[in-house]
Amino acid sequence: MNYHWDWMFFFQETDDGLKYYDWILSGLGWTTFVSLASLAVALTLGSVLGVMRTTPKRWLVGLGDAYVDVFRNVPLIVQLFMWFFVVPELVPEKLGIWMKQDLPYFVTAIVGLGLYTAARIAEQVKAGINSLSRGQRFAGLALGFTEWQTYRYVRLPMAYRIVLPALTSEAMNIFKNSAVTYAVGILELYFQYKQIIEKTSQVLEITIVVTLSYFILAFVMNRILAFVEARTRVPGLIVGQKGGK
């Protein structure tokens, strides 16, 4: 093999006066920010949608189902292009111009990735709620809870615990999926990776570093949620067991 290893290239100066490792760090920062912000959007909206789909109200269920069908089955990159290029043309003209000129790219990217992931989280939340015995809802209602209170105090706390492993994998996925936002101009890790490859010939070093970076991000997320799981574990309850039995 004639490959010329040079790990020191990370400390070389780039055209813009920064070092290559600055590019990497900046990319890592954007990847982390976009991913966590999207996750927040996804968890919030996904929970609302998941709950909607388990209510006795038909139109809410229909609305939630339709959302999930659309947002889960259209490729993420197509969805991002929709938000960037199609939606501004469909909304009232002033709003469209504002979206194109003044709305920061990263906001649109976060919304796009968040709404895509929300559909997947909605599936998990719905599955979690439906895995509880019907009696739990009845017990809440019988005590005088409103339908919403049965979610707030009875069903969601258990549902989240049950689907935490699935949510963990969604939370890890979002770092990977965030790489797609390079296509709409977010200067995140994958964007920097491509840029560095074009500028230098140290493909192996940079690939190794970027791979490790993504791995570490996912790993840290995994550990955080494992901690949450341990903290919220219910004494005396076997994992996967239905409530109240």
């Binding site: 739990q136 009845f138 809440g140 019988a142 258990m158 309850l237």
Partner: peptide, 18 residues
Amino acid sequence: KLRARVGMVFQNFELFPH
């Protein structure tokens, strides 16, 4: 409000496990 005044006990207890 009405249900809050009527106590109910179920076959499977239905305590809140968490």
